[in-house]
Simulated assay, not measured.
Amino acid sequence: MRVPSRSPGQRPGPSVTPAARTRRRVPGASPRPAGPDLDAYRAAVADLLVEVGALAGESCDAARQALIDDRLREPAIAAVLEATPQGLVGARETLLLEMARYQPNARSSAADLTALVRIYLLSRVDVMWWRDAPTFLTDAQVDASPDLVDLEWLRRRDLLRFRYTEQPRTLLGRGMRAVSRRLRPAATPRTAGLRFRRARREVVALLNDIAREFAANTPPATPPLWVTSLVRSAEHQHRLRRLGYAAMVPSGHCLGWAVDVELEWFDRFGARETLAELLLSRQRAGEVNVVDEGQAWHLCLAPTAGLRLRQAYEAEMGV
């Protein structure tokens, strides 16, 4: 799959035909700043996950803690964790606490302890990148922020290339959603929907860009990219945690720079692997951080891609 060139003034609509896959450099992106080696970090995390998976039994608690204590001090991992707001010690303590509290449930994207460790450690790249960004603490702050735009306003003007559904707010709405799922169980992804239909302008440009590329490299009958989560308040993040979701703290969602996109549903259209490769290609280019959370994949925009995407948003929206 050849990834299309993306200039700041690109307009909606397919612009390339599928061809051989190539490693690409993102046009208009700033050079990567000096910092931790993220390839080495992800490789070290992958090795750690193999060892965590081998210590899955309840009798292995002490061995798992000793393993975490040892591996998090490895230079490749320690360099990233030390650069987060919590630092290495705080990140270690938070991870051990998450592991001690872990209870598998159908809502959580962490199907087991190994998945929990993967999600936590890989998502630390987000908070390292955006460690100086302010957190949206309350629902009211999300609703009132001038840094966010209303997706519904854009959708009604046909300015979005991706789809989403909102979270029902009333008992009647939840009932109608349940009936719709029973009648057409595979018509849409199985997701609670967006609590906030608001997003940063750069994130809208990123999702439109990914959606166009996805459409250009899949059969015409394939549905558009589907977004399952965007910005969240810290208040809502803790609400999700109480419900059993693997909602990590701190989180790129609460900074407004992270999104979740549906992957599993696209299996029925033979497009899941295409989308997965597309997202990983962007990670290799340094444009996003990617965390495989099973049904949906978590993405966080890299700071170096922000200027290009802000310019792309302004050009596309005619601002």
Rank of each mutant, 00 (worst) to 15 (best):
V179K: 06
T228P: 07
A29V: 08
L151S: 07
I119S: 01
G173Y: 02
R6H: 13
N208L: 11
R155A: 08
R184E: 07
A115P: 10
R118E: 14
W257N: 09
T135L: 09
L160I: 00
F266K: 03
N105Y: 01
A46K: 13
T222M: 11
A29D: 15
W130S: 01
Q283I: 05
R92Q: 11
L240F: 05
R212H: 10
R32L: 13
V249F: 09
R184M: 09
P14W: 06
V288N: 11
R131D: 04
P12C: 13
W265L: 09
P219K: 04
E293M: 03
R181A: 10
V80E: 11
R177A: 14
A110Y: 04
P189T: 02
A215C: 05
L160E: 08
G87C: 03
R212A: 08
H238S: 13
L113P: 02
L97W: 07
M99K: 00
D70G: 02
P168F: 05
A62N: 07
E74G: 09
I119R: 01
V291F: 05
R308L: 05
P189S: 09
C60P: 00
E93P: 02
R6V: 15
R195T: 13
I210G: 01
G256M: 08
D37P: 03
G28D: 14
A56S: 15
R195V: 15
L121G: 03
P27Y: 14
A62M: 07
L49C: 09
L49V: 09
V288E: 01
S15M: 02
N217L: 08
R32C: 03
Q237D: 14
P223W: 07
M99G: 05
I68D: 04
P219W: 04
